[in-house]
Design a protein around this nucleic acid. Structure first.
Length: 459
RNA sequence: GCCGAGAUGACCGAGUGGCUAGGUGCGUGGCUGCAGACCAUGAUACUUGGGUUCAAAUCCCAAUCUCGGCCCCA
């Protein structure tokens, strides 16, 4: 039974989807006005693995994400660069999708652009006005917070607290906490609406999109911790007011921040690392491993040394696969057999692994179980008491694990035949040198190859 | 001011009452010509002070510190 920590109740709850084994999931997507950063990557890798695991567990998951392609930041950036906002949005949307692909994030079923859902947005606002949850002023249409007493239930705040500390106060609003559903604007880009030209407020696109594709009630809503307030509160207020159905979502899941040197990344601090920067000189799987070696709700402190540690850890997994492959493909006679014992080992490890993942997707715990297993298998190989048959099971279990964590776990060597032949020549010659105990020369060859990132290991 | 998260060994990081997680790094031993990989093994680990309990990293109380949210943000 899978347990999920629900931000709404602050407790782990058993996963019970609305419709048997079907799960409807929505995760807030990015505002596409700039390159995506590694904080985004953390969140989306986390959800990628959550979805992989749910699917592995037999759930049919529909994973929806929005793309905020209309927003003040987009407009501002576009005017600075003297391009059309939509052009800018499309450009960074494309980059975002490329970045996600590079990171191996691949389970989103549908990306919904805000600008392609204006009719749905307008319909929701009309309903809110009709039902008295919203009001119109000369500057826009606002949600009337006082009509939704539960406002703040997700972040556990009360409305009184929310009505202080507001800046850039729009004087036409009834309460300071009221938020915009529609902003009346005559500058481009704008859309026509019953309330005049303008564009949607920040929160309404998500509920319009989720109602369209998932309905007024669905299973899981995810996003970064920073979206709890006010974004997700606003979504709850809108959707539950529109439909009259509660709750809008059964499980709220929030990912922790990625910090750089103990501080949250922000443009003002200048510690902003984009996914592109990261991938310039790091393997995406190393970053994925770093993300998964911390629980999705905990903060991650990003650093080069953290990456280095992850790289080395990940290497340990790859080494075993390599060794196993080497033995299976070799023609050496079979090692001693203790098949039954090893079958049990694989089975127990799988069970423990699933138990860890069932427990609110505890990837670090799950990893520790994998490493336990790796040590055991290495020991068996060292003692030469594992059969090729068992090693096949080991390999397929590790591949199963790799599928869930989104790690390829295949030998990454991809060189052309010519180079391969050439390498074989070098290795053969070096072998002869070693037979003659020409250590100096053979070490030189090894170190020169090492400089070319070709690691030669003698058995 | 109001809300929230956290403090575990050199570093990262699990763990809600008893049975030394795991990884990285480092030391030692084994295997190796050497190195690497692998195996074995080691280092004053649970912020502080009280309390509950036969038993606490884990529960309670207090304190200290760190970080985050409250305009925008994954």
């Amino acid at each position: 039974m899978i347990k999920i920590y629900n931000t709404m109740t602050r407790k782990k709850e058993e996963l019970n989807p609305l419709h048997e084994n079907r799960i409807k999931l929505f995760v807030c997507g990015p505002t596409v006005y700039d390159n995506s950063h590694i904080g985004h990557a953390r969140t989306y890798i986390s959800f990628d693995v959550i979805v992989r695991y749910l699917k592995y567990r037999g759930y049919s998951v529909f994973y929806l994400q929005n793309i905020t392609d209309i927003d003040d930041k987009i407009i501002k950036r576009a005017s600075q660069l003297d391009v059309e906002p939509v052009e800018l949005a499309r450009k960074f949307e494309k980059r975002y999708l490329e970045d996600m692909q590079a990171l191996g994030v691949e389970n989103v079923n549908f990306y919904a652009r805000a600008t392609e859902h204006l009719p749905e947005i307008i319909t929701q606002i009309e309903t809110l006005l009709l039902e008295g949850f919203a009001y119109q002023t000369e500057t826009g249409v606002y949600f009337d917070e006082s009509k939704f007493p539960e406002f703040g239930k997700l972040s556990r705040r009360n409305i009184e607290d929310l009505n202080v500390h507001r800046i850039n106060q729009d004087s036409t609003k009834k309460n300071p906490g009221d938020f915009a559903l529609w902003k009346k604007r005559d500058e481009k880009p704008f859309w026509k609406s019953p309330w005049g030209n303008g564009r949607p407020g920040w929160h309404i696109e998500d509920t319009a999109i989720t109602e369209e594709y998932l309905g007024p009630q669905y299973d899981i809503h995810g996003g970064g911790l920073d979206l709890i307030f006010p974004h997700h509160e606003a979504e709850i207020a809108q959707m539950e007011s529109v439909s009259g159905k509660k709750p809008m979502v059964r499980y709220w899941m929030h990912t922790g921040f990625l910090n750089v040197k103990g501080e949250k990344m922000s443009k003002s601090l200048g510690n902003f690392i984009t996914i592109r920067d990261l991938l310039q000189d790091h393997d995406p799987e190393v970053f994925r491993f770093l993300v998964l070696s911390t629980h999705y709700r905990s903060p991650i402190d990003f650093s080069e040394s953290a990456l280095e540690q992850s790289k080395n850890s990940l290497e340990r997994i790859y080494k075993l696969i390599e060794t196993v492959n080497g033995i299976i493909e070799s023609d050496i006679s079979d090692l001693n057999q203790k098949d039954k014992e090893h079958n049990n080992k694989v089975r127990d490890t799988r069970n423990r692994f699933l138990e860890a993942m069932d427990n609110d997707f505890n990837t670090p715990d799950a990893l520790s179980i994998i490493f336990d297993f790796i040590r055991d298998i290495n020991r068996s190989i060292d003692h030469r008491n594992i059969s090729k048959n068992s090693l096949n099971d080991v390999r397929s279990f590790l591949m199963e694990f790799g599928g869930i964590f989104g790690l390829k776990l295949t030998n990454k060597i991809c060189i052309d035949d010519k180079t391969n032949d050439l390498l074989e020549v070098i290795v053969e010659v070096r072998g002869k040198l070693r037979e003659k105990k020409e250590w100096e020369l053979s070490d030189l060859i090894r170190s020169k190859l090492g400089d070319l990132d070709i690691i030669l290991e003698d058995k």
